[in-house]
């Protein structure tokens, strides 16, 4: 029960970030613009949404890395007899690391989301800077490649007949970030919309 609440603490802000980067997030952005000036423009709204998504993507990845460390101690965190059982996936030593370097998926998620967050912060603070175009493209490529990782991890869930809600939240964060970077790229191509303060 408590671990489900904890998942919600990561999932709800991630979904809110997804709403902000989506075209229909404009009304929410407008309603928040009086308090948060950045929400007044589409660019500001998308970067704010991406900031939320990558931050909580980082946080949920750190949580999965922590869970795998706790399970290796011999404990359990979200073991359950139902299909929603993250211990059987995060605690599975064959599945919880990447097949090439043997790095924990949680650690990989932390590194990737930290780098995405770094790029989003640079774009947000210096939208017309020399790194903007490069970082938008890089963000799109990284999260695009992330889709293959998501597919691989979903195949593990199907194979084990288990669903890890923490992992699913991280997968949603990757898909939402891809969508956000794609939207940001489209906006950047439209120079007049991009340069709006």
């Amino acid at each position: 029960m408590i671990d489900n609440l904890l998942v919600a603490a990561y999932l709800i802000p991630t979904l809110f970030g997804l709403i902000l980067v989506a075209p229909f997030g404009k009304s929410i952005g407008d309603s928040l613009s009086a308090r948060f000036e950045i929400m007044a423009t589409e660019r500001g709204r998308i970067t704010a949404g991406l900031q939320l998504i990558t931050f909580f993507g980082f946080a949920v990845s750190a949580q999965t890395f922590w869970i795998s460390s706790k399970i290796s101690e011999g404990g359990n965190f979200c073991a359950s007899s139902t299909v929603f059982n993250c211990d059987d996936l995060i605690g599975n030593n064959d599945l919880n690391v990447d097949p090439v370097f043997g790095l924990s998926w949680g650690m990989i998620g932390m590194m990737v989301n930290a780098f995405l967050l770094f790029m989003v912060l640079v774009i947000k603070n210096e939208p017309n800077g020399e790194y903007t175009e490069r970082f938008i493209k890089l963000g799109t490529i990284i999260t695009g490649l992330g889709i293959f990782v998501v597919l691989l991890l979903v195949s593990y869930e199907i194979q084990e007949s288990k669903i890890c809600l923490y992992c699913t939240t991280a997968h949603i964060a990757n898909i939402a970030a891809l969508f956000g970077f794609f939207r940001l790229g489209k906006l950047y191509d439209d120079k007049s919309a991009w340069k709006q303060n």
Binding site: S68, K70, S72, M111, A114, F115, F118
Partner: peptide, 22 residues
């Protein structure tokens, strides 16, 4: 900012978990 965030996360994990290698 991001490096600090990463460092803090790693420190929290290091202090609250004691992973045992397989």
């Amino acid at each position: 900012s991001v490096a600090s965030l990463f460092f803090i996360a790693i420190m929290i994990i290091a202090f609250t978990a004691n992973p045992i290698a397989i």
